[in-house]
């Protein structure tokens, strides 16, 4: 190994060992990167395959628009819109992040958890908006990426606060007879590093797919009963009233589930971080 490569490598290692601060709203000069990122995101996402409206692109645009308009002109005595935004922000910050991680540690991970919450909430809500139809999170790509982000985040948190002890604590939990580690270490590895991201992904995706299928079932049944059976003069077609009512009820349920899944994803990410940094005794 030459001197140059050695120096480059040691520089890289130094760079890694530096504490990387999570981006905050008050970070110096965040505008250029943000605007480039957002513009390219919309430009690539807006090109839908079938030439229709692209749900995720619309969602991202709407989220950005709401937060830009809502936080553009902040006042000490908030107006109605600002108060509503602040209420949601306060709920995510206090109810999800600070409750789980504590205030000091929570401040570090608050931006990314809040981003996750609002992205998932927006993408879930596209499932119930007519014209956009399928939720952005019903395709497995987005939840998978978010789960990987959460996975990297809790490993990073553990490594940052406990170093190598993080691996020891998570693979070899204390208080267990030594010979049992033969069975426990693989199980712990499986449950912590494989099952967690997989369940995060599947829970979100399958919730959205199952909800969508339920709505499809109800509304196609309505269509069939009204326009095929009832049009033939068969009074059994009046069952369509029932399936339509169920469809509407499940739409409301989907709205609730959209918010609930965003909450669950964010709070589980926070709990995984908390478990990674917790001191074992």
């Amino acid at each position: 190994m030459t001197d140059v490569t050695a120096r480059v490598m040691s520089d890289a290692v130094d760079g890694l060992s530096q504490p990387i601060d999570a981006p905050t709203l008050g970070a110096p000069n965040p505008e250029p990167t943000l605007s480039i990122h957002v513009a390219s995101l919309i430009a690539t996402a807006a090109a839908s395959d079938d030439g229709g409206v692209h749900g995720p692109a619309v969602t991202v645009a709407v989220i950005i628009l709401i937060f830009w308009l809502g936080t553009r002109n902040m006042k000490i005595v908030p107006g109605r819109g600002q108060a509503a935004l602040e209420a949601i922000f306060m709920f995510v910050r206090n109810g999800i992040v600070y409750d789980t991680l504590g205030e000091q540690r929570g401040r570090r991970y608050e931006p990314i958890l809040m981003t996750m919450f609002f992205l998932i909430l927006g993408m879930n809500l596209t499932g119930t908006i007519p014209g956009l139809q399928l939720a952005g999170t019903a395709a497995i790509g987005l939840p998978l990426i978010l789960a990987v982000v959460s996975w990297v985040m809790f490993i990073y948190a553990g490594m940052r606060e406990k170093g190598a002890k993080f691996w020891k604590d998570s693979l070899f939990p204390p208080g267990v007879p030594v010979w049992l580690y033969v069975f426990i270490a693989p199980l712990e590895f499986l449950s912590t590093f494989i099952v967690r991201p997989v369940t995060l992904t599947l829970r979100l995706t399958m919730n959205m797919i199952a909800g969508h299928m339920l709505l499809v079932l109800c509304f196609t049944a309505t269509q069939f009963f009204f326009f095929t059976v009832l049009a033939d003069g068969n009074l059994l077609g009046l069952l369509g009233v029932g399936s339509f009512a169920f469809g509407l009820a499940f739409t409301v349920l989907e709205l609730f589930i959209a918010a609930l899944q965003a909450y669950v994803f964010a709070i589980l990410s926070a709990i995984y971080i908390q478990l990674a940094v917790a001191e074992e005794h």
């Binding site: 109810g95 369940t199 599947l202 829970r203 995706t205 399958m206 919730n207 797919i209 199952a210 609930l260 899944q261 909450y263 669950v264 709070i267 589980l268 709990i271």
Partner: peptide, 20 residues
């Protein structure tokens, strides 16, 4: 209530694995 939703989500995950 928030603990309940957490527990429900963790339990539900099993049946979502089954859908998958």
């Amino acid at each position: 209530q928030s603990l309940m939703f957490l527990g429900v989500a963790l339990t539900e995950a099993l049946c979502f694995i089954a859908i998958a």
